[in-house]
Computed example of a mutant assay.
Amino acid sequence: MLGRVGCRSVARFGTDCLGRVGSSHACWIGVVPAAVILGVHTREKPLAAADLDDLAARTAGYSGADLTAVCREVAMFVVRAVADAYPGPEANEHTDEVSLSPAYFEAALETVEPSLG
């Protein structure tokens, strides 16, 4: 089974990602759950009843980059919807109406295809 790999620098181990002794960094590598990746990319954004755990369960074959693309596509759907609803600069006055709804996530999953399967 393929997983999503994440790497972060960890200063307390005394080696870096390449294994050089004496460096102040080390690498932790592991599988990052899809819900965590989706949570990072939707943090501080208004979610309208979107269940990220349910969405993550349906992303088999999606890499971390694919999940990032899904979130970017959701944002574009939302922006287009507000821009279509209000003429010109008036759309800027309605940013409070922006929310990432489950329908936008569904549309994004249909648009972005998984690259791992």
Score class of each variant (00 low, 15 high):
L18M: 12
P46H: 05
V40C: 14
R72V: 14
D66Y: 05
L100T: 00
L18K: 11
N92Y: 07
V79R: 09
A34E: 05
L67K: 03
T111L: 10
V10P: 02
E73L: 08
Y86D: 02
S24F: 09
E73W: 02
S23A: 15
P89V: 02
Y86P: 05
S24E: 10
P114K: 01
T95D: 01
V79H: 06
D84I: 01
A48Q: 12
N92R: 11
C7D: 06
A83S: 13
A57Q: 07
A75E: 06
C27I: 04
C27E: 13
P102H: 08
I37T: 14
D51S: 11
C71N: 10
C71F: 09
E93Y: 05
V32K: 06
G19H: 11
R80Y: 11
V82G: 01
T59E: 10
R12G: 12
G117Q: 09
A34V: 01
T59R: 10
F13Q: 07
L52A: 07
R20M: 11
H94G: 07
M1Y: 08
P102L: 08
V5P: 00
Y104E: 03
P87Q: 01
E44S: 12
G14L: 06
A83N: 10
E113A: 14
A56R: 03
I37P: 11
D96H: 12
R8Y: 13
R12W: 06
V74I: 10
A34Q: 02
V98T: 06
S115W: 03
